[in-house]
Every structure is written in structure tokens, then in C-alpha cells.
Design a protein around this nucleic acid. Structure first.
Lengths: 197, 197
DNA sequence: GTCTATATTTCGATAGAC
DNA sequence: GTCTATCGAAATATAGAC
């Protein structure tokens, strides 16, 4: 009969860590609480001590992205709408690249679980936060103070980054990261018609 | 007591249509056979007259993309590896744009259900077809006969299209499709450093 | 803080009547 | 071709002991 482990306060963090990996790996629905508990050497029921529902684990992971998006938007929105924002866009792309490289797992979680993430909308507070973030980005990309052509290019630049560091990343695994980043900046410069770093 | 509807031979098509919508909308796992049956006004059991397993519905939808990808790759592979392929790439992008506009729903199904689609690998024939398609695209983008810079740009061009007509499409709903396509071609020309149409 | 044990729900799938 | 009825598995969630 195994004695309780008493892992202490960091157990909560470990749950989030393991959940992030399993949710990303095999999908939110396919990763059961039993899977998570087994890998941590605890039982399913113990998880309920830290999180009331399975969904709450996903929610907490989701909010990490909220945090990044919100901070980035807040910084960008300080800039007056118009040409100044176009000029500042490269800085946004830089931060996005950084985030994608250091938080690959959180992004993967979202890319691979849009349905489960969408279900978080049942949570009132989360839904409002989400809609607000989307509106803020939409507002930036819809501004009449920026020519349509430039807005299409700002949007395109996001696509370039997500493609090279996401879906098509496998095609360039042999390329040293620094070289790939440099080439990406070249492409982004051409997309935006202005230098990127 | 409701009399059987006897919807006739087009019921199979309707099932695929509704399944495509629900699978894309809320995710494959979250869309139950009950959901599909309810929307069609039939019962769960009736679905089993047309499809042996739930997975078979997804498989049939998935093969639509196989068909498009296979045809496009076959055409492109006729071109000798090297500069000729770089020159022919814009034509590929044109076909991709056409496909995304007319088959938005099928693409969304795949983008939003990578896990379920991946599980189709259990089907031997499908797995082999899939791996072959991936290898063919990887081969194109990994060719030593094309400079790395150009290959990164070919990959980036796919990202531009999927972003503008996929994730960020909502930002340009007010723009007439023809104008958006024209602007997209402009961006693609800059990405590839050659004219696109 | 963790356990055992069990309740509850949901879903894919099958059997057999009509 | 469609129905009712039900099975079995798996998952989320709860109750209560230690």
C-alpha cells in the first residue's frame, strides 16, 4: 500500500506541464485525466483537488496566450493610428517570432485544439476577454488610416511566420535556426516593403 | 409515431454535407453521430446503413483533399526540377487560391481536426497515400536544385494565402473578392520576387 | 493531499422489428 | 431504409475514508 506522496505546492505546476504536453500531443479530448494522473504518479481523484473540472486546466493554459496577446496589443495600441503603426509593425513581428520559438508548445496546443478552446467560450469571463482581443486585432487591421494594401501585407506577414515556424517547419529542420530567422526577416521585409530588423 | 422518411439515395450526400459542417464547426470528437442524425431528422442507427463506422465518414471527406493535392502535385512534377519549377510556382498558387475559395469548408475540416485526420492513419491504404503526398511536397521544397532562399519563399507564399483566405479572412470581408485576390497576387509577387499572374 | 470506490454521462456500435 | 432498444467501453465527476 503506497503512502501518499505529498508532492507539495509545485504539484499544480506539474499538472499544467504534463497536461500541456498531452493536450498538444494527442488532443484535448483524447488526453484523459487518467493519462495525466498516471504520468505524475498520482490518481485521477487527486487532480480534482487542484482543479474543479478538466476544462479548468485547459483554461489556465489558454490564458497564457491571452496574456501574451494582450500585452503585445496594449503596447502597439499606444502608437497613434496611421503611418506610425505601419512603421512599428516589424517590431510586432519580432516579438511574435520570439514568442513562437520559446512557446512552441502553447501555440501547438491552440493550433491543434480549436474545438476545445472554442468550448471555453462557455466561461463568460473568458469569452468576453477573447472577443475583446479579437476585436482589438481586427480594429488594427481594419483601420481606414492605413491603406488596404498595407493592411493586407501586415496580415500576410503573420501568415509567413506561422507557416515557416509552424506547419511547414518540417521542411527546414536541417537549416540552423539563426539562418532561418534571417531568411524569414528577408521575406518579411519584401512583404511589408520595409526593412525588418 | 412518425413514419419513416425514405429520403432516398441522396441521403448519403446529405450525411457527408452535415458531417462536414459539424466536424469543422465543433471538432470531430465533439460532433457525435447523434448530432448528425438529429440535424437530418433521422436516427443514429440509420447512419449505419450508409457508413459502417463514424471514421468512414471522415475518411470519405478527407479523400477529397487527397484528390486535389494529388492532381496538383502530378501536374507540377512533370516540370523538370530546378529553375523551371520556380517559374511554374505561381501557377500552383493560383490553383490553390481557387481551391480555397470554392472548398473553404473542406480545408477548415483539416485545419481544425489534425488529430482525427491523423488517426485515419490506422487505415493502411490511406496512410500510404498520405505519406506519399507529404513526401512529394517535402521533396519539392527540399530540392538542392533550388536555392534555399527561393524555397523559403515558396513556403512563405503558401502561408500568405492560407492566412488571407483562412484565419485572417474575417478582417477583409468587406473587400470585394476580386480586389482581395488582386492584392494577394501583388504580395505573392513580392514574396517570390517574380510576377504572379 | 491523496486514496478507493462508485456514481453518472456520453458515445460508438449492434440486434432485430417493421 | 429507418426505427426502437440496448450493450459495452470509456470518461468525467463525486463521496467519503485516511
Amino acid at each position: 500500500m503506497a503512502r501518499p506522496r505529498t508532492q507539495g505546492p509545485q504539484t499544480r505546476e506539474k499538472i499544467l506541464e504534463v497536461a500541456l504536453e498531452l493536450f498538444s500531443d494527442r488532443g484535448y479530448d483524447k488526453a484523459s485525466l487518467r493519462d495525466i494522473a498516471d504520468r505524475l504518479g498520482i490518481t485521477k481523484a487527486a487532480l480534482y483537488y487542484y482543479f474543479e473540472r478538466k476544462e479548468d486546466i485547459l483554461l489556465e493554459l489558454h490564458l497564457r496566450l491571452h496574456k501574451f496577446g494582450s500585452e503585445m496589443l496594449a503596447e502597439f495600441e499606444k502608437i497613434p493610428d496611421g503611418p506610425d503603426r505601419v512603421a512599428a509593425w516589424p517590431r510586432v513581428l519580432d516579438q511574435l517570432i520570439d514568442f513562437l520559438i520559446t512557446n512552441r508548445d502553447v501555440m501547438l496546443l491552440h493550433v491543434r485544439n480549436p474545438g476545445a478552446i472554442g468550448a471555453l467560450h462557455a466561461n463568460e469571463r473568458n469569452r468576453l476577454e477573447n472577443e475583446l482581443l479579437e476585436q482589438r486585432l481586427l480594429r488594427i487591421l481594419s483601420s481606414p488610416a492605413i491603406p488596404l494594401d498595407q493592411r493586407v501585407r501586415m496580415s500576410s506577414s503573420i501568415g509567413v511566420i506561422t507557416e515557416l515556424f509552424g506547419d511547414s517547419g518540417f521542411a527546414f529542420v536541417d537549416v540552423p535556426p539563426e539562418e532561418l530567422i534571417a531568411l524569414t526577416r528577408q521575406v518579411l521585409s519584401d512583404v511589408l516593403r520595409m526593412p525588418v530588423t
